[in-house]
């Protein structure tokens, strides 16, 4: 018989059944606890032994964390709602189709059946040097292995890099930024609500983490306001294979158009920086403009201003420029 390999080093497993119990556990265990929702980001770290933990707090039995409910014309989506549930939920599809589309393009069917919306926005960087356990900046060291003359950095950042050139790999993150979502974060005895774009942390602010979550904190829900319900949405993800692969670049936008003119727009791009990048200069520049090819091209050029490329990721500049232009022209005109 094959040897029984110990897939992961031993940890103590806690399976609380309520948010209150989970918060008590997280408070008690502090930085020693690893929160696990679907586990699809967590398992790689633990199996590869690149990160270890003594205790896992698994959220699968906390029913109240996976509820989708309507709030003031918007939606509150529990953090452990699976990506499949998000992609198939009738109200998400009808009013916030942007998020349904983004969630439906993540990874593979089995991963979407298990991976959660909270886990998808909280997942760690996918830089393989870091994932392989190299002692880089993000891991607390003092070098970036992806930014050397011989590095393989085709997937890495073109914007806002600061020593670390890893990107935010999430498909749902730009959609949530475009929808002006906010994230509900609870700890024992407290709660804070953070706008989606403020949830993500770039290397300039803290190079060792991707989000503002502190030990002891639990992401409990994602709130989407009514503001952009039913707007014209555009999501596009470019990847190597149509399954499993992370975005090379993705774009998410919400547009309000009247009489051929853009009234207002929110747009965010993923996989070009360590956080999803909201393009506020583009939003300002297109407001009030006719929705034409010229406006779209102007927006594309503006979007990539300041981009800095590495040896192998130069293609991301025209890719991002064109995706932003397509987001403005809309699905009907996207291929022309």
């Amino acid at each position: 018989m094959a040897a029984i390999h110990d897939v992961m080093p031993m940890f103590t497993l806690y399976q609380p059944e309520s948010v209150d119990d989970a918060l008590r556990l997280l408070d008690r265990l502090g930085a020693g606890a690893w929160t696990m929702a679907g586990g699809l980001d967590s398992f790689d770290w633990l199996k590869d032994r690149t990160k270890r933990t003594a205790a896992v707090v698994e959220l699968g039995n906390v029913a109240e964390l996976s509820v989708i409910r309507e709030v003031d014309g918007g939606l509150e989506i529990g953090a452990t709602t699976t990506l499949t549930e998000v992609a198939q939920h009738p109200i998400v599809r009808e009013r916030f189709g942007l998020l349904a589309e983004a969630a439906g393009l993540v990874a593979s069917p089995q991963i979407r059946h298990q991976g959660t919306l909270g886990g998808n926005v909280t997942q760690d960087a996918r830089c393989w040097y870091y994932r392989a356990g190299w002692p880089c900046y993000r891991a607390g060291g003092n070098i970036c292995y992806a930014d050397t003359p011989t590095a393989i950095n085709r997937e890495h950042a073109i914007l806002h890099a600061d020593r670390c050139v890893a990107v935010s790999p999430s498909d749902t993150a730009p959609a949530l930024v475009a929808l002006d979502a906010s994230l509900v974060i609870r700890r024992l005895g407290g709660e804070r609500i953070v706008a989606a774009q403020d949830y993500f942390v770039g290397p300039g602010r803290d190079i060792t983490r991707m989000t503002v979550l502190e030990p002891g904190e639990l992401l409990t829900a994602i709130r989407i306001p009514a503001t952009w319900a039913g707007a014209e949405f555009y999501f596009e993800k470019v990847r190597d294979r149509q399954v499993w692969d992370f975005p090379l670049v993705n774009v998410a936008s919400a547009l309000k158009v009247s009489g051929g003119r853009i009234q207002s727009m929110r747009i965010a791009v993923g996989a070009v920086a360590a956080t999803p990048v909201r393009l506020m200069a583009v939003e300002r520049a297109v407001a009030g403009q006719p929705r034409t090819r010229e406006t779209a091209e102007m927006a594309g050029r503006l979007a990539v201003e300041g981009a800095v490329t590495l040896a192998h990721n130069g293609y991301k500049v025209p890719l991002m420029r064109n995706l932003v232009a397509r987001a403005i022209r809309g699905a009907g005109a996207a291929t022309t």
């Binding site: 497993l13 696990m36 586990g39 089995q110 991963i111 059946h113």
Partner: peptide
């Protein structure tokens, strides 16, 4: 529901 059993804790 189809799931990857290599990536599910048995306790889940």
């Amino acid at each position: 529901v189809p799931r990857y059993s290599c990536s599910v804790l048995t306790h889940m």
